[in-house]
């Protein structure tokens, strides 16, 4: 067991945790933004799946990672727009819409992927390179984990900081929070509620799309059917655990990453426990964390309620 507690073990462990957490944090940030504006997107899984598939298809046919990324973003936005049409324009139940989106995305991507592959298996597309940030990456323990990453990961750090400032310090951020808390009050203060909700959903699609694309373009290089396998839902849990703030969500997602990295580590060093049992660990941890967290306190007051102008 001594090999468990060396510095290099912890470094690798932390690096794995961050790697596992990044797609979740992208999706979680997108979901945070949508929920702040009062729209819950249970369809995050579908948004990510679409992002993953279209980024793969884009990168495969064009041979360019940038094109792949853009396609992934477009794929994610496609799903969030669909969600917007159903629950903003038609003012329908957001949960039902989100569920439909998940199913639609699963059907669509599986179908298109089969069409693309015609039975043959795909080779990998190349993935984004990592750049170590001079100085920072040399910090013991966390340097390699956080600062020897790819460009999308650095972008994520910037986005997290920007959105934290956005909510805490800017006019638009304040308006944004008001839309989720009290849309009627927001509208009467001259804030175009639906415009804000649409913007939030588009950002939700972009970030969710990147989250899915990240799996393909940075980590795996391949697409497989239903490859998101629940990450979208875990992102939703992270938003709740993070009390609907970007940095809180970041911490919650990282916690999940740590639990997951831990179980993988334990597997590789050959602990004599069933790998399936170990794999329960991150989910069990999330459940325990939710058991401890109070549910409603941080959620925007009007979350999930369709806003119809002029009604009460």
């Amino acid at each position: 067991m001594s090999q468990l507690f060396t510095l290099s073990f912890f470094t690798a462990f932390l690096a794995a945790a961050v790697r596992l957490a990044v797609p979740l944090i992208y999706a979680g940030l997108g979901e945070t933004i949508a929920e702040k504006a009062g729209v819950i997107n249970i369809g995050m899984e579908g948004v990510m799946l679409d992002g993953a598939f279209f980024s793969f298809a884009g990168a495969w046919y064009s041979g360019s990672l940038a094109v792949g990324l853009l396609c992934g973003i477009a794929g994610g936005v496609l799903m969030s727009v669909l969600h917007g049409v159903i629950c903003i324009v038609l003012a329908q139940d957001q949960t039902v819409s989100g569920l439909a989106i998940n199913m639609f995305a699963l059907g669509l991507t599986s179908f298109l992927f089969k069409l693309m592959s015609q039975g043959q298996s795909y080779q990998q597309v190349e993935t984004f390179e990592t750049y170590a940030i001079p100085g920072l990456s040399k910090i013991p323990l966390i340097g390699a984990a956080f600062f020897e990453k790819d460009i999308l990961c650095y972008l994520l750090y910037i986005l997290l900081i920007l959105f934290t400032i956005f909510y805490k310090r800017t006019d638009l951020g304040l308006s944004h929070i008001a839309v989720g808390e009290a849309p009627h009050a927001a509208e009467s203060a001259g804030i175009p509620v639906h415009l804000f909700q649409w913007t939030a959903l588009l950002v939700n699609g972009v970030l969710g799309g990147i989250g899915g694309a990240y799996l393909v373009l940075v980590q795996l290089g391949v697409f497989t059917e239903n490859m998101i396998s629940g990450r979208g839902y875990i992102a939703l849990a992270a938003v709740i655990l993070g009390r609907h703030m970007p940095l809180g969500m970041f911490a919650a997602a990282l916690l999940f990453g740590l639990a997951n990295a831990l179980q993988i580590r334990l597997q590789t060093i050959g602990v004599s426990v069933s790998p399936y049992l170990l794999a329960i660990l991150p989910y069990a941890m999330t459940l325990l964390a939710m058991l401890g967290a109070a549910g409603r306190s941080s959620r925007p007051e009007s979350l999930g309620k369709p806003y119809v102008r002029g009604s009460r």
Binding site: Y233, A237, I240, G295
Partner: peptide, 13 residues
């Protein structure tokens, strides 16, 4: 606990 039943039940899946 006022928790979202959807997310909990998915985790349990």
């Amino acid at each position: 606990r006022g928790q979202n039943e959807m997310i909990i039940s998915i985790m349990l899946n």
